[in-house]
Design a protein around this nucleic acid. Structure first.
Lengths: 346, 346
DNA sequence: GTGAAAGCGCTAACAG
DNA sequence: CTGTTAGCGCTTTCAC
């Protein structure tokens, strides 16, 4: 009834019949095997092209025990860091002519573990991932690794796992950002952050505290504002409350969407950025320069992190010796704009 | 040498052996077939769980001629519209326990056509796509459809193709935006846009021109600024040039990254938004309210478009009668902020 | 250089 | 209710 007239699928068998050769010959010719004569090869390839032959990937995967597919497992996608990282991964995957399965954990350990389960039995040849914020048990990851599937981590990594990790210098970036605010004569700097995220946000918090301590400021717990993971109005309220109570003159926001919340909170309280509060945020959003005021950011090398992760995964798949516990740290850069500058430019 | 001790893959055969039943019984028990006794079923499921059995997806796909996988084919991913749409798609895919392959065309017809080729032979059960800007020939799409793979379009669609399409009311949104600027007493409104994108940007251009015409303003060609597809500095120069020559007092930017370019161009020329130029942009970026000034946007229902596209694809896959040429139009909304407002709020 | 045959792991008839 | 059997479409020894 539907108008989808199944066009006659042509497979190797029919191809072989048409060409009056064996199916084995077709297979070898198409994979450019050394033991097929050049004319035969040409004939086969020509016929395949003409008849629009497309090999069945699953038959081939089943036989070869290789899927030519990788998985990307990340917490979320509507985030410029992750989407730029995907671009980096894709830049390599496309060259290798692999396929990419994408899975979003929405920062849930349960989903992450479920997804890893789905990847057993050869669905993918390798995995690139950034772990969910509430993942503590890593057995799902280990199980997959033990099954022979390499897992490369980027951004949010697990240090106790024996595998390649691509990170950026979170601790140092926060350290630099904090010092930058101190240099801009902030006396009371707060960190606006999110619960969880073991590896990465705690590194940022450490960098922040370390910088304060070195400058003789005792970091107090009340300087850390804990927001929710989701982009919502609640966070604006939490930050407003903090601004009212603690009256910080500097804020470091540790994740992208908290920039918006922080700006809105300041606006609603009629606090001027940077005069009353100076702001720095970890974000890759392209709108940073046109915010009110232009936002000082810690720009992460998202694309390159994704690209590097993919490169190392493919090195591993190609059997190249990849140091098992390799940890690559790509630098983030502090891009200074008006939101953290002392003297207004006018 | 690598420390990846292939754990003994356990398959149905070994599972059957352990349980002292036939392999068929195992298969049926696991798929909850009606003709297996409840105790046997339990025994099998229990053993499978205990031995950590995971079915080989490719063997099953090969046999069933169904992959439980769909493909998303989109121009780019570092764009809030597309990443939010993916979230919408994923919200359904996750429920259906399907898998998602993702392909980025980078707006290239050649890559798009290549990717469609890869999808023949059953790699996916269905496709959700937004076409590349320079795709004119649709034979690659038709070929896949004729092979029985349903293709659902969203956002950038082809009208001559016989399939489900999810769009937003681009023409009307531009029409509304233009009228909004006219109401704000703009006399000389320009459209900042991009070459190509047959379906969607031309609809926006039409809406713009139609609104002008109805208000007795003859739209002139010089009112349309053509930028490049990529986010770069060149676009800023093109827009500056236009601002200098045409002195528009209103600008409608048709794609997300042109908001940044337009703001930067105005800043560099020291043109005040909204006093000298009022700006409206098609964008879903969450930073719109904190720009300088807050940006009036045409907000597209990205998540819902993706979700609806996925729902209809699964309806089709489930054999439900889906009207073949169904076209669903979800409304965009004009969110008015300071960038297009006549009187400053102070 | 080419072909026959076995089988990857699973599902679906069909018998019993 | 359970088991036997025949493939899905491809790759890969191993004979010829």
């Amino acid at each position: 009834m539907a108008d989808t007239p199944k066009s006659d699928k042509i497979d190797m068998k029919t191809l072989a019949k048409v060409l009056n050769v064996s199916i084995a010959t077709v297979s070898k010719a198409l994979r450019d095997s050394h033991d097929i004569g050049p004319e035969t090869k040409l004939k086969v390839i020509e016929a395949a092209r003409k008849l629009n032959y497309v090999p069945n990937p699953y038959a081939s995967s089943l036989r070869k025990k290789a899927s030519n597919t990788i998985a990307i497992i990340i917490p979320e996608i509507a985030d410029s860091f992750f989407s730029q990282a995907i671009n980096g991964i894709e830049s390599i995957v496309a060259i290798k002519k692999y396929h990419t399965l994408i899975y979003l954990t929405h920062d849930s350990y349960e989903r992450e573990a479920y997804m890893f389960g789905e990847l057993a039995s050869g669905r993918v040849d390798g995995v690139i991932m950034s772990v969910a914020s509430n993942t503590e048990d890593t057995s799902h990851i280990k199980t997959l690794q033990q099954a022979g599937v390499p897992v490369v981590f980027f951004d949010r990594v697990f240090n106790d796992l024996n595998s390649v990790k691509i990170t950026t210098d979170d601790l140092n970036s926060a350290y630099v950002a904090t010092n930058h605010l101190l240099d801009a004569s902030c006396k009371n700097i707060s960190l606006v952050t999110i619960k969880g995220y073991p590896s990465i946000l705690s590194a940022r918090e450490q960098g922040y505290k370390q910088a304060l301590a070195e400058r003789g400021v005792q970091p107090k717990e009340s300087g850390v504002v804990t927001c929710s993971n989701k982009y919502n109005n609640e966070n604006v309220e939490v930050i407003k409350e903090h601004l009212r109570l603690q009256k910080p003159d500097g804020i470091i926001a540790t994740v992208e969407h908290l920039a918006t919340s922080t700006y809105l909170a300041c606006n609603e309280l009629k606090l001027n950025i940077p005069r009353d509060v100076k702001v720095v945020c970890f974000t890759n959003q392209i709108t940073a320069p046109i915010l009110n005021p232009p936002l000082t950011t810690i720009l992460q090398p998202a694309f390159d992190m994704g690209k590097k992760a993919a490169q190392l995964l493919f090195d591993h798949l190609a059997g190249k010796a990849v140091e098992n516990n390799k940890e690559i740290v790509l630098p983030s850069t502090l891009v200074i704009r008006e939101s953290s500058i002392m003297e207004l430019l006018n």
